[in-house]
Amino acid sequence: MPPPVTLDGVGYAFGEGALRRPVLRSLDLTVAAGELVLLTGPSGSGKTTLLTLIGALRAMQDGSCRVLGQELRGASEVARVALRRRIGFIFQNHNLLAFLTARQNVAMSLELHPDFGDEGKRLAAADAILDQVGLSDFTHVVPAKLSGGQRQRVAVARALVARPGLILADEPTAALDRQSGHDVVHLMRDLAKKSGMPILLVTHDPRILDVADRIVSMEDGRIVA
């Protein structure tokens, strides 16, 4: 079985002509099945751009990027949307829908999956994963009434509930205090390890480096370590 993520000579630049500014230069990276890879580096080193390319949120420019068996070079918008459904995203901000309760937010990501055809199944799966992230008492609460750590745990539950083949997280602890950040990352790792989901996590946060299987450092669009 090929690894979930294989990057081969990936390059990316913003702007045109004289304003063209490369952010990724001929970059190679592999994430193995079940591996937690932590991506660090100074601001502007291209970590986030790399994450958006792997997450099929951006069209490729140079090189080859295979994610969960899908070649993203020249992939159509339809193919990219289909791939995104197999990836769990966790953002710096929770981005939960304010007018939905925790379980409704989690259940929504299952609307795209044919295995969860009816609302009952979706809500049951949502309740189960909210229980695993320790929020069984908050399933009917709207995000505004949760703490920052609780909201991010709902976001983790939302990303993991559909059992994605890959989890992409961007600074998931940036908005949290030390203890909440530690809890969220460990929770994420434990849940992912249980079902063998690989995680690619971009972070500046030195407090969470201990969760990683492997740490990749980037600078000026290249991997340096």
């Binding site: 949307v81 791939l83 995104r84 459904r85 197999r86 995203f89 981005n95």
Partner: peptide
């Protein structure tokens, strides 16, 4: 932001 997140989720 929420709509963009929904798009990212597929």
């Amino acid at each position: 932001a929420e709509y963009a997140t929904l798009k990212a989720m597929g």
